[in-house]
Each structure stands twice: as structure tokens, then as C-alpha cells.
């Protein structure tokens, strides 16, 4: 069974529609679509997880978790296979961050926004901090490559990560230009105003300042005070890189004070919207999309006109933006 889904204890979204369901069963996510023999991913049923329109095969029932994994591994369709990177094809290195909830949330956000992205017709896309290559590979699989006129850049400060990204891209038969660098150093002058889509899963974990920018895998998560040290360096660079119609998708943690990030970006002329909100026992993640306020974001315009779904699409925003900050698409 393949369906687009949203998990909560009360609401399912199927494609663009939603339906209510009251149940207490497991919803296991098809082994992150195609993960075979590895740890699967399951949302704790007590938490509301808001995930917009994903291409998952899902399996709903009440039997054991491991059984669910076996069952759902057979339900993955070829359609979902080619839209995101496959876990079994990922390259690995002990000093490189492996895809985790945050990476999956980012890819889910891109999938949720895929129709808009295709309509957006980006020419250049870029991932800052590509790590394992899971996200940039997924984006390339989602949007197509040269034949669609889309080209990809990926950067990472960790020399092991760029090697792993290269191998992951190759294993999926897609290409991105990879550069070992700090954020976009060396690229930002010439690429200024040219990038139509930037995706970032930054090092957002609050840590002691001295851990920020350390060598190896630490650089992938150490974010200093409030986890903002690197985020606050990335945002001005992204602002420089983005074209007039450019979009940024960024993962944040509640501890990063995302509403303040949105206020900051608003001062630079960006509107923002949460694409994915996901809570686990450990952390609460948001994937936020930013775009130039004076240029209508396509889906935002559409949502206003589309009845009850638009109200629901704003529901998580209202709970999140308690202070009424940020602009909501």
C-alpha cells in the first residue's frame, strides 16, 4: 500500500485530503521507505507528528514492531524508491553524520513541497553541510537533473563527508558538484543571487562554544549556545546566495528559538512557513521554508483559496507562532 500520510494519534492525511481516525496502533514508516535490515523509524504514538504529504508506504496495525518492518519492506513501491535516496545505497564513514530524524524530516519537507519545487523550476540548488549526501541525493532524485535543467551544489567542512556524499550520489546515479568548504566560502561571491533552492540541516544542538567547528563528525551537530552559532553564520550567506525567487529550507530545533530566526529573516525581507513539524521524546524539530516576502510563494497563495485544507495547513503554525511572529504563507 502506498499512500501519502500524516501521523498523529487522531488525524491522517492522505495525499491532499485528510481523514480522522481514532486508534492506538503502531504506524511504522516503511523502513524509511526502503531501509532493509536496518533500524526502522517509528513515531511515539503519544506525540503529534505533523508531516505533510509524504510518499511513504505505510503499514498500520497492532502487531509487533519487527513484524511491521518485515511486512512493510515488501510494500515499498518503485515510485517511492526513485524519489528519495535509499538507505542501503548510502556510503558511510565513522566521522560522518548518518541520516537521522532531522535528515528525514528535511527530505519529507522537500517531498511535501515537491510539486511547488517542480513548478518553481530551479536552475541551481545547493545543500550547505551535505554530510552523508542523503538530502542532496534525494533532492536530485525528486527534481531531476540536467535534462530538467537543474544543477546541484553541495558543500561540507568535513573532508570525509564530501567523500561520502560523492559515493552516495554515484550509487544513485545522480550528480552534484561538491566542494569542501566552510558554508559556501569561495562560492558565495560568484554564486550570489543565483541559487534558487538552498537546503540546510545545520549543526543545531546546543553545546559548549569550544565544540563548534571541531574536526570530524562534531561539526555536524555542535551548535554552541542555543545551537545558534553556525545557524547565525549560515543565514547571511544564504541571503547572499539566494536568487530573487530563491527558497531556503532549514531544519531547526525548538531550542534554537525558530520564531526569533524567522524575525531575523523577516528583517532581511523573508516570509516563512513551517513545512514539517515533528516531535520525538528527545527533540522537537521544524523544517522551515523561507522566501522573499515580496514574491508570492506559490503554495501559500493556493492554500488561501482551497477551503478546509488550508485551515488545517495553518493549524500547526498557529500553535507554534504563539507570539504571532513571522509571516505565515
Amino acid at each position: 500500500m502506498e499512500m501519502n500520510m500524516l501521523w498523529s494519534s487522531e488525524i491522517f492525511f492522505v495525499g491532499d485530503k485528510f481523514l480522522y481516525a481514532s486508534h492506538s496502533s503502531f504506524v511504522t514508516m516503511a523502513l524509511r521507505r526502503n531501509l532493509v535490515g536496518c533500524t526502522s523509524f517509528c513515531f511515539p504514538p503519544v506525540f503529534l507528528c505533523w508531516i505533510a504529504a509524504m510518499d511513504y508506504s505505510i503499514d498500520i496495525g497492532s502487531s509487533s514492531f519487527s513484524t511491521k518492518c518485515k511486512l512493510s519492506s515488501r510494500t515499498v513501491s518503485s515510485k517511492s524508491l526513485h524519489k528519495t535516496a535509499q538507505i542501503r545505497l548510502l556510503s558511510r564513514h565513522p566521522e560522518v553524520y548518518e541520516p537521522c530524524d532531522d535528515s528525514f524530516a528535511l527530505v519529507d519537507a522537500l517531498l511535501a513541497d515537491r510539486a511547488n519545487l517542480l513548478q518553481h523550476k530551479p536552475r541551481l540548488c545547493m545543500e550547505v553541510g551535505c554530510g552523508s549526501g542523503y538530502v542532496i541525493t534525494s533532492l536530485a532524485l525528486m527534481l531531476g537533473e540536467e535534462n530538467s535543467g537543474v544543477h546541484y551544489f553541495a558543500t561540507d567542512i568535513n573532508p570525509h563527508a564530501v567523500d561520502v556524499t560523492r559515493a552516495t550520489l554515484e550509487a544513485h546515479g545522480v550528480h552534484a558538484e561538491i566542494i569542501t568548504t566552510d558554508i559556501a566560502s569561495g562560492l558565495h561571491k560568484r554564486l550570489a543571487g543565483m541559487v534558487d533552492v538552498v537546503v540546510v540541516n545545520p549543526p543545531y544542538v546546543p553545546t559548549p562554544e569550544e565544540e563548534v567547528g571541531c574536526e570530524g563528525i562534531t561539526a555536524s551537530w555542535a551548535g554552541g549556545e542555543n545551537g545558534r552559532k553556525v545557524i547565525d553564520r549560515i543565514l547571511p550567506v544564504v541571503d547572499e546566495l539566494l536568487s530573487g525567487k530563491g527558497w531556503l529550507y532549514m531544519v531547526t530545533l525548538t531550542a534554537n528559538n525558530p520564531s526569533q530566526i524567522c524575525r531575523l529573516m523577516r528583517e532581511k525581507g523573508y516570509a516563512s512557513r513551517i513545512i514539517v513539524q515533528r516531535s520525538t521524546e528527545e527533540e522537537s524539530l521544524h523544517v522551515i521554508k523561507f522566501w522573499h516576502e515580496d514574491i508570492a510563494e506559490m503554495e501559500g497563495a493556493r492554500a488561501v483559496a482551497s477551503g478546509p485544507e488550508s485551515w488545517l495547513s495553518q493549524f500547526p503554525l498557529k500553535s507554534f507562532w504563539r507570539g504571532g511572529t513571522g509571516s505565515i504563507g
Binding site: 573532508p159 567523500d163 560523492r166 566542494i179 569542501t180 568548504t181 566552510d182 566560502s185 569561495g186 562560492l187
Partner: peptide, 13 residues
């Protein structure tokens, strides 16, 4: 000199 290895330029300073 910024080296290029396996097709990847290294711009780290």
C-alpha cells in the same frame, strides 16, 4: 593552491 581530489576542490583555509 587549493587541491582537487577525486573531483572535489578543497577550499578550506
Amino acid at each position: 593552491r587549493f587541491p582537487i581530489n577525486k573531483g572535489i576542490p578543497n577550499m578550506l583555509l
